[in-house]
């Protein structure tokens, strides 16, 4: 019992400490974002890494998600004769849920892991200390550009995913099951509201920011050499995934009333 309470207490203390440190990092990132000089060149470089280079993986993910949604809907909804709804199901699922969440997971796995590994390596090889000795603020130089790029690139990637996912659904419904093309688009557009799309994009931006902060935090405070970098990277991906999946529920409850 004593050991259990001890472990529980230690876990709570660690959790509180990490949460506090993340909030402080967040605060520093926002401050550095507002204060000149602005890291424009650096931010574009990161946007390239996080956004543009994630496009192929995000697209493959989205197109197959759209395809499988259509496949499941056509075969599943057939039981109660509602397979004509496939356009709506794909469009609503993609924009409200699958687009942001799966793109978030892709970005977490690709860019989040890269952020943690890169910053972690910089920490253990004293490159972050070196930045400070050269009178450059590490948060401004390293974390703010990553955070800003993720915040803006995630919605951009998501809107692409939404669109490509709906196209994937179209391919399956129309080409494979011979559904009417007009019916698919009709169902897709008629039941889709603008709020479905932008609320999905709000989610995406939140996931992007969260992945960047968590991954940079893990990398920034890495200790313990190569093993530490490995742990930081794993930690970054796991915590990012958890953050996305858990916050998704609450964001959905809040955004889609």
């Amino acid at each position: 019992m004593y050991n259990f309470l001890l472990a529980l207490g230690q876990t709570l203390i660690r959790f509180t400490k990490i949460t506090g440190e993340i909030v402080l990092l967040m605060w520093a990132v926002l401050r550095e974002f507002l204060l000149p000089p602005y890291e424009i060149k650096n931010t574009f470089k990161q946007a390239m890494e996080i956004g543009i280079k994630s496009v192929p993986v995000a697209l493959v993910t989205a197109v197959f998600t759209g395809m499988v949604l259509a496949l499941q809907t056509v075969t599943g909804f057939k039981r109660f004769g509602a397979e004509s709804l496939v356009g709506s199901v794909v469009a609503l699922s993609m924009t409200r849920e699958m687009g942001p969440v799966l793109t978030g997971l892709v970005v977490a796995g690709r860019a989040g892991a890269a952020m943690a590994a890169e910053l972690g390596t910089m920490r253990v090889t004293e490159q972050i200390d070196a930045l400070e000795t050269l009178a450059v603020k590490p948060v401004k130089y390293l974390v703010t550009p990553r955070f800003t790029s993720a915040l803006f690139m995630m919605p951009a990637l998501t809107i692409l995913s939404d669109f490509v996912g709906i196209l994937g659904g179209y391919a399956v419904a129309v080409w494979l099951f011979g559904m009417s093309s007009v019916l698919y688009w009709h169902r897709a557009w008629d039941n889709l509201e603008l709020s479905d799309i932008y609320n999905g994009l709000i989610k995406a931006a939140f996931f992007g920011g969260a992945v960047a902060i968590v991954s940079c935090y893990k990398g920034f405070y890495t200790e313990g050499g190569a093993e530490g970098v490995g742990k930081a990277t794993t930690g970054a991906v796991v915590i990012s995934f958890m953050t996305i999946l858990i916050s998704d529920y609450f964001l959905t409850a809040w955004l889609f009333k």
């Binding site: 390596t121 910089m122 090889t125 004293e126 490159q127 200390d129 070196a130 000795t133």
Partner: peptide, 12 residues
């Protein structure tokens, strides 16, 4: 200040 780090700490 200028500082030389043990492992040089070059930005790779």
């Amino acid at each position: 200040f200028g500082m030389l780090f043990q492992g040089a700490a070059l930005f790779d």
